[in-house]
Design a binder for these strands. Structure first.
Lengths: 213, 213
DNA sequence: GAAATAATCCCCCAAAAGAGTGATTTAAGG
DNA sequence: CCTTAAATCACTCTTTTGGGGGATTATTTC
């Protein structure tokens, strides 16, 4: 079998070096390029068409979330795996939303990376539950609390329903007998709670979660 | 049983008179008000809270479609029935999309109206298939051709997929390697073909029709 | 009684969306 | 050959959206 072609994107040279060392122990991975930020990631992906991109989340110029989103839009078949030491695990969920296949934590059992990467590359797992569990259980309690559920309030749900039906903020405000400012405020909070960017994504989300009617 | 409280909205006085005559033959209908346009319809609905609104489509100031949409947004339980002599039957489907319960044609068997209205009021039919058929069969062939299916083209479907994922026009244009102008043009055509107003409604539609993935 | 949350409203501002026009090129069908 | 449809791009203009600040009440929770 052809080795998996891997692109590494991280702003720290020493981090890239560490990753390279880990992967070079295995003959079924070949590192085809390295980038320092999101912009380079996009350019290098176009040039090299890697099988897998290992991408850091925090980077200057363009961060890994934005880069993941854009690369996935243009090249849906490229697998992207986030690498991070993030202390805010919600970033990782955001990454999955933007199309990343999975994530690996720099400081947690890098010796097992190759195994997980192979699983990602072979599409064996969209996001392996075992890996997720493995990672989550490593997190101290106070960290995982950052993924606390912030469910939508009653009013926010009402707004959501009307947004998903395609009504404008103005129309919603008239329907609920409140000002348009308030509607925008609710919507802002909803998008923020759900880590979404716009009302279309909210509508998709609502359909997929069965939140409507 | 209480008689059904009916509001008539039509810009022609003689049309309102004709409707009044038809309905007054039946004791289970009482006409509580009359309006001449969409704005009046909204005002009168707030004041009178009728069970059923009989509304013309073509009216000055604000037409029946817009009025239907707004009334339904504020008062979802009011039944709205469109009355029209429209030669473009697509208007009627638009009316149903905006929340109308059904429609009646001025020039076709008004003697059967009361029966149909009773059905609408009692929620026996969201839009009775028999009535729809009855009306459709009265239409000459060349008229019904105006409801011709205009399916989306391949490219339009591609645009739809990306819109429903919450991407902006700019992002879509970069993904498809075309200009943003072209994306807007496609989107405009899509919305027009499907009689929708914005990308959120398109997203809802796509989900409900199972057009995605 | 303090702290947190929900719901309401306000301002500013840049970007995006949508509606109305238009044009050109290519491909497909009769 | 003519017509139609699809796909592309363009310009203008207004409205809408979404992000960034805030603030005030009232209620609930600890």
């Amino acid at each position: 079998m052809q080795p998996f072609r891997i692109l590494i994107v991280d702003d720290h040279a020493h981090a890239r070096e560490a990753i390279r060392e880990i992967l070079e122990e295995h003959t079924d991975f070949v590192i085809v390029g390295e980038g320092k930020n999101g912009e380079e990631a996009i350019k290098l992906t176009e040039e090299l068409m890697p099988d897998i991109i290992l991408m850091d989340i925090q980077m200057p110029v363009m961060d890994g979330l934005e880069a993941t989103k854009r690369i996935k839009l243009k090249f849906p078949y490229v697998k992207i795996v986030m690498i991070t030491v993030s202390d805010d695990i919600t970033d990782l969920f955001d990454a999955l939303k933007k199309g990343a296949q999975g994530y690996l934590l720099k400081n947690i059992q890098p010796e097992a990376w190759s195994e997980h990467l192979r699983a990602f590359a072979l599409d064996e797992v969209p996001m392996s539950k075992e890996i997720a569990f493995q990672i989550l259980k490593e997190f101290p309690q106070n960290k995982t609390k950052t993924i606390k559920k912030t469910p939508l309030s009653t009013r926010e749900m009402e707004v959501l329903q009307l947004v998903a039906k395609g009504f404008s903020n103005r129309e919603i405000s008239e329907s609920l007998f409140i000002s348009e400012h308030t509607v925008k405020s609710h919507l802002k909070n909803i998008l923020s709670k759900l880590h979404l960017e716009n009302r279309v994504q909210l509508t998709s989300y609502a359909f997929q979660q069965g939140l409507l009617n």
